[in-house]
Simulated assay, not measured.
Amino acid sequence: MKKMYYQITIDSPIAHVFKTMLAKETYKQWTAAFNPTSDFEGSWEKGSKIYFTGVNKEGEKEGMIAEIAEHIPNKYVSIRHYGILDKGKEVTAGPAVEAWAGSLENYTFNDLNGQTLLMIDVDTNEEYIDYFDEAWPQALKKLKDICEAN
C-alpha cells in the first residue's frame, strides 16, 4: 500500500469548502472526475457507515463501503475503507478486498488568511497510482471552481 498526497489552495473560507466538499449535490459534481455517476449514501458523522457509489458499464451499482473514522468539522475527515459493493451486494472479506481493506482517505483543512489549503492523503495499491494522479488533481480543480463560484 502506498500513500499518495494531493493538495490545493481554494480562495474561499474553510467552512464553505468543508460544506461544499461534503454536501450531496456538490460532492457528485467534484467527484465526477473519478466516475461520472459518483455519489454517496450515508452520513459523514464519526462512526457512520458510508457507501461511495457509482454505476458501472452494465448499469449496476458498485462502489466502496467505508466508515467515517474521524470527523472534526472544518478541520479533518478520515475515511476507513473496508469493503466493496458488487452488483449492489456488500463484500467485506475475500480476495476482492484483502489488498486494500483498512486503507485510509484523509482530508485536512487549513486556514491561509481566509483561503483554504485542502490536503488529501490516501492509501492506494500500485495499480491505481496513475489513475489517482490523473483523477485527484481534476477533482480538486473542480471543487476549487465550485467553491470559488459560490
Rank of each mutant, 00 (worst) to 15 (best):
23 A>Y: 09
23 A>H: 12
24 K>E: 14
24 K>C: 14
25 E>L: 11
26 T>W: 01
26 T>K: 07
27 Y>E: 10
27 Y>K: 10
27 Y>T: 09
28 K>A: 09
28 K>G: 05
28 K>Q: 14
28 K>I: 02
29 Q>I: 11
29 Q>Y: 04
29 Q>T: 10
30 W>F: 09
30 W>G: 02
30 W>P: 02
31 T>M: 03
31 T>Q: 03
33 A>W: 05
33 A>G: 06
33 A>N: 07
34 F>I: 02
34 F>M: 04
35 N>G: 05
35 N>D: 09
35 N>M: 03
36 P>E: 13
36 P>T: 11
36 P>D: 12
37 T>A: 04
37 T>C: 01
37 T>I: 06
37 T>S: 10
37 T>N: 06
37 T>G: 00
37 T>K: 02
38 S>A: 15
38 S>T: 11
38 S>D: 13
39 D>Y: 04
39 D>T: 05
39 D>H: 07
39 D>R: 00
40 F>P: 00
40 F>C: 00
40 F>V: 04
40 F>A: 03
40 F>R: 06
40 F>L: 07
41 E>D: 11
41 E>M: 08
41 E>Y: 08
41 E>S: 10
41 E>N: 11
41 E>C: 07
42 G>E: 07
42 G>W: 04
42 G>F: 06
42 G>V: 07
43 S>W: 12
43 S>G: 13
43 S>H: 14
44 W>R: 09
44 W>G: 06
44 W>P: 03
45 E>F: 15
45 E>H: 15
46 K>G: 12
46 K>W: 12
46 K>M: 14
46 K>E: 15
46 K>Y: 14
46 K>D: 13
47 G>Y: 03
47 G>P: 06
48 S>M: 10
48 S>W: 03
48 S>Q: 10
48 S>A: 14
49 K>S: 10
50 I>Y: 06
50 I>K: 04
50 I>R: 05
50 I>C: 09
51 Y>N: 06
52 F>P: 01
52 F>I: 06
52 F>Q: 01
52 F>S: 06
52 F>W: 08
52 F>A: 00
52 F>E: 05
52 F>Y: 08
53 T>L: 12
54 G>K: 02
54 G>E: 08
55 V>E: 05
